[in-house]
């Protein structure tokens, strides 16, 4: 944590904060007054967030706070009850999951969703599906374009796999990989769809400390190399505080705090949400 320089956050027109270096370009994602009700239950009430073009954002909160629901709203797995989502200046109101992906949001899942019976390489090629194409007939009759595109896809897939040093696993079935490798493969597959914004749902879940440290390095590397914004949900505070530049804390479907890691760590509302009121008072007494 200590070796990380804290990024200064600045306000943008919508009531949000983004890193100062991104202030000259419009935010990649602007979410305002987003909410969803499931029957009488309000899962997300009034969620506002802006993400800068090269920001690594974090979304934290206790279990059941609505973090994954927000990811599902952003990717249109659920249609929001109210509010707007602007992706790179484009309103996603009438889009479905597929169109949102084509517009530039890729995601991973909390409970890993790989194509188990396909190989690692094929999983990545599915990510490349909309980038490099040929028709079904070209595939059946094996026209020259088939060989050319498949070769290009193969090379691109190996190149992407090399981010996590997974080239050697290319021909294994995705379902047979160890847990950590499956999580990494999901990230590679999401990256292959050429996103502007990458959503990672608990990328470090089930990883040991050394794997987590490696993952942190790789997330930063991905941001630097691909010049994309990343928003992640995570319970591992070392990871969140270590790489996120801006953090939003969610509790009961509402944002209770926003800011840099230091600001969040010292925010009384956050401590209350995580530890309860009593613990907070005891903490104060000690100080």
């Amino acid at each position: 944590m200590a070796n990380k320089e804290e990024v200064k956050l600045v306000s943008v027109p919508s009531p949000n904060l983004i890193p100062e270096r991104d202030v000259n370009s419009s935010p990649i994602l602007e979410v305002s007054h987003l909410g969803i009700d499931f029957g009488g239950l309000t899962a997300v009430e009034d969620f506002n967030m802006a993400i800068g073009r090269t920001e690594i954002g974090g979304l934290i909160g206790p279990n059941g706070a609505g973090k994954t629901t927000i990811f599902n709203l952003l990717t249109k797995v659920y249609q929001p009850t109210r509010g707007t989502i602007m992706l790179d200046g484009l309103d996603t109101a009438n889009m479905n999951t597929i169109q949102v992906n084509k517009a530039g949001i890729a995601r991973t899942f909390q409970n890993i969703r790989l194509f188990d019976k396909l190989t690692v390489e094929e999983n990545v090629k599915i990510g490349l599906h909309n980038q490099m194409g040929y028709s079904a007939a070209t595939g059946v009759f094996r026209l020259p374009k088939y060989w050319k595109t498949e070769k290009a896809m193969h090379e691109k897939a190996l190149e992407l796999l090399s981010i996590f040093n997974m080239q050697d696993m290319a021909n294994f079935a995705a379902g047979s990989l160890p847990y950590g490798a499956q999580r990494r493969l999901e990230i590679v597959r999401a990256l292959a769809t050429n996103p502007k914004l990458l959503l990672l749902d608990e990328p470090a879940a089930g990883m040991n400390p050394s794997e987590t440290a490696e993952l942190m390095e790789n997330i930063r590397k991905i941001r630097d190399e691909f010049k994309i914004a990343i928003l992640l949900i995570e319970h591992d505070m070392n990871l969140v505080m270590g790489i996120c530049e801006a953090i939003a804390v969610l509790n009961f479907g509402k944002v209770i705090a926003k800011g840099t890691p230091t600001q969040i760590q010292n925010n009384p509302a956050v401590i209350e949400a995580y530890l309860g009121k009593q613990a907070q008072e005891e903490l104060k007494k000690e100080v």
Binding site: T97, I98, N101, R107, F109, K117, H129, A190
Partner: peptide, 23 residues
């Protein structure tokens, strides 16, 4: 064994992930 077949098999294995990949 083409791009189309790969997509068909991916949808069989996991429909939600296939949609999230833009299929």
């Amino acid at each position: 064994n083409s791009r189309t077949g790969r997509a068909i098999k991916a949808i069989r294995d996991n429909r939600i992930a296939a949609e999230a990949c833009g299929l």
